[in-house]
């Protein structure tokens, strides 16, 4: 049996650099900036990338490029990939638990519950991908010789402001329903607790999720949210984490008639979500065709 040169107790750990997740890659902010992240108790944890407006615009470009091919995947395939995300998260369970403890100040048992709920949420939405069309769409009995059907379709690029106080379960709860139906997402992670989002990005990157389907920015909400809200190539805006800025962001979104999901006064991220976060990011398309011989 060979001897390791340094005993485990004396070894210097290799730390992780927390970066952005953009177009399938992990770049630093183009601005070169970062910001210190502390635990719930105020202990320094790491530096996170401080994304710029330009990073936000790059993320929209990546999300737009990824949209058509992702929406064109079969619902079955999207379901398989979302399920794969759950698998990848389970494999990194210890890391997510530790980051949840650090970020939310929870005890280990409670953090385990949060991570379990986050993993199970992917499984939940993996199962929705190929059911939404039947549940929300259908044939319309028009009074004439026409075949007429309505189907839900993804609305496009969705800017998601993740809830700041639930940096893992809340984050998964806002991303998964958006991409399940074929949308792509630009996500602003929890500003005070961004580290679980970067680790989630690493799970996403190893789940066969095409690059650009989810793009995760860490940084200041005040800097990143306004350009996303008013961006002409953003089709919808989830204000879950907008806080006091919700009204001004909704107003900015009005200019390009961006669909807006307003924040609820209090959201229990552990509760079963149903379709409530799926339908706001869908369009209904109705197709007519004459019937005859």
């Amino acid at each position: 049996m060979s001897e390791f040169p340094v005993p485990a107790a004396a070894r210097l750990p290799v730390r992780k650099t927390y970066k952005l997740y953009l177009g399938g890659g992990f770049p630093r902010s183009e601005s070169g900036r970062s910001y210190p992240v502390t635990s719930a108790e105020g202990e320094p944890l790491a530096h996170a990338a401080l994304a710029s407006r330009k990073d936000a615009r790059d993320a929209v470009v990546a999300a737009r490029r990824a949209f058509a091919p992702w929406a064109a995947r079969t619902a079955y395939n999207r379901g398989q990939i979302l399920y794969r995300v759950a698998e990848m998260m389970e494999g990194r369970r210890a890391q997510f638990v530790q980051e949840t403890i650090d970020a939310e100040g929870l005890d280990t048992a409670r953090a385990e519950e949060v991570v379990s709920a986050a993993v199970d949420r992917w499984v939940y939405y993996a199962g929705w991908t190929d059911k939404v069309t039947q549940v929300l769409g259908g044939t319309n009995p028009v009074s004439g010789p026409y075949d007429n059907r309505s189907v839900p379709e993804p609305t496009g690029v969705v800017a998601v402001l993740a809830p700041p106080k639930s940096p893992l379960l809340g984050l998964v709860s806002v991303i998964a329903p958006v991409i399940a139906t074929g949308n792509t997402a630009v996500v602003v992670a929890s500003e005070p607790h961004p580290l679980p989002a970067v680790t989630l990005a690493e799970a996403l990157a190893t789940s066969d999720l095409p690059g650009g389907v989810v793009n995760i920015l860490t940084g200041r909400l005040a800097e990143l949210a306004p350009p996303l809200a008013s961006h002409a190539d953003v089709n919808a805006l989830d204000l879950a984490g907008a806080g006091e800025r919700a009204a001004e962001l909704e107003e900015a979104a009005a200019t390009t008639l961006t669909r807006v999901l307003r924040p609820r006064p209090s959201t229990d991220w552990a509760a079963a979500p149903g379709l409530s976060r799926i339908t706001p990011f869908l369009e209904t398309k109705t197709v007519w065709h004459p019937v005859g011989i």
């Binding site: 319309n140 028009v142 004439g144």
Partner: peptide, 9 residues
Amino acid sequence: KFDPTSPFG
């Protein structure tokens, strides 16, 4: 073509 049963928007 329009019909009350057919979603429009």
